[in-house]
Write a protein that binds this DNA or RNA. Structure first.
Lengths: 261, 261
DNA sequence: CTCCGGCATTGATTCGGATCAAACCCGCGG
DNA sequence: CCGCGGGTTTGATCCGAATCAATGCCGGAG
């Protein structure tokens, strides 16, 4: 059987959740969750930003929370800051006029959403919470100012943009050259790796809150065909996907399917 | 009739051209083409890098030249610098083990190749000259050092990475959601726009040295199907592609085909 | 408990693009 | 002048994924 992913709500905040698609500009700030209790206080971006034990309040990253399925950011809105996912999953996507959508990337805790948007601009993508999401918001001006006199942050930023570019390149190859099965296997492998790093991979099992529709939007397929591929993977005994998580029985085989060619 | 694209060779250098697939590390440096004669001396990257009329030699960007079809950079090679295309066209692509390739982006004069690789790394893509190419090479260390005390360069860099990201996102949508005709129309429109900016769009006609095979590799299609789509566009009277250039009869229609949905 | 609505599943059919194959065109070397 | 070879064109066929459609499966509201 598949382990359930526990909804990370509850103990934090069940009231006051934004339920009508607001942007981060309107999502409620959580007053009782300052940076010093945040999981990412000393990791990745925040670690570089704050330095070793420096005062977290210097650059007021504000924690906010938003319910699943709500938009965190909508394409075209004014954007004067960067946000980091602290808890939960989100997707960065482009909404097409004909109703289709392309998911550009999956955002997991620690990820910055649209980091290259350090330049104020009309962004073409939107961001939507997949699960309930707690995130943190940093104004451009603060970051840019600090990039100059904070070498750690500067290095982090260069590495980050490089990594984003490389990931985008990889996805381009996926969508341009690979079959449905390969794309889906690649996605599962990618998420598995990331969960492994976060210590969330237990016995081949890891949380996976994306719906089949969302997998389809990510891989450029239809939900129907996505379902068939997942069924096929299940029949082959490679893995099972559902109920908010994935159980991988044959990691090597999954890896092979996603890397091949 | 279609206007021929004049080979930009000749008056510069017909001897000494690298004809055996070397990397920039081995391509001959052109001693007689210092920065002060370069077309891009005061534009884009170089403009920001050198400042207003500052000494071009401070950061010795070295001009090199390479013949069409040769590799400028090969995936996996050590990379300790950034290169800028000064003259000619190149493509940035991923070579797959099964012989297929995915072209990630088309590089035209003024473009930086793999700019996000300011971090030394194993790059997953290669770069190949489409026409004869003259390019310029800048070591990472120099650029990084100058990013700190050169606000113009710093801003340029932020804008550049943002623009790259946005372009990658757009391509992801193309490959994930659009039909063959739409992808090809989008490519032609993109190149037309860029040529227009460079003043190379005359009477709907602009240089286009990509082969059908290369268009196919860019769009994730087969050369055969690419040919069919081009034929269809020709029959519709929208545009003609061939002999190194494109003649667009109905820009609005081409635009529509590439943007639609 | 039952009804209802959204997601997942499965089958039948269609269609866009790949693949296979043959001819064609044209520049080039001999 | 001829023959060669790489890229282009066109036709016939195949296949992967989309589309259309029906059924099943919960989970939540009443």
């Amino acid at each position: 059987m598949l382990r359930e992913i526990e909804p990370l709500s509850r103990q934090i905040n069940t009231h006051g959740i934004n339920t009508h698609g607001n942007t981060h500009g309107h999502a409620p700030v959580l007053p009782n969750l300052p940076c010093h209790t945040c999981h990412f206080r000393s990791a990745n971006f925040c670690g570089a930003l704050f330095g070793r034990g420096g005062p977290a309040t210097a650059i007021a990253g504000k924690h906010r929370e938003i319910a699943a399925r709500q938009n965190i950011y909508r394409a075209g809105e004014a954007s004067d800051g960067v946000l980091m996912i602290c808890e939960g999953w989100a997707v960065r996507f482009v909404q097409l006029p004909n109703g289709k959508r392309q998911i550009l990337s999956v955002l997991m805790p620690g990820d910055l959403a649209g980091p290259t948007s350090l330049v104020e601009d009309q962004l073409i993508f939107s961001i939507q919470a997949v699960t309930e999401v707690r995130y943190c918001y940093f104004p451009f001006a603060e970051i840019r100012a600090r990039l100059h006199d904070n070498p750690a942050l500067f290095n982090f930023w260069l590495r980050l943009t490089a990594a984003e570019q490389r990931e985008a390149d990889r996805r381009l190859v996926d969508l341009g050259q690979r079959t449905a099965q390969e794309r889906i296997a690649a996605l599962l492998t990618y998420v598995m790796r990331r969960c492994e790093q976060r210590g969330e991979l237990l016995d081949g099992e890891f949380p996976f809150p994306l719906s089949q529709q969302q997998i389809a939007d990510f891989t450029g397929l239809t939900p129907v065909h996505t379902c068939r591929v997942l069924s096929s993977l299940r029949k082959k005994g490679v893995c099972e996907v559902g109920h908010g998580c994935v159980k991988v029985n044959e990691p090597a085989e999954l890896q092979r399917l996603g890397t091949l060619k």
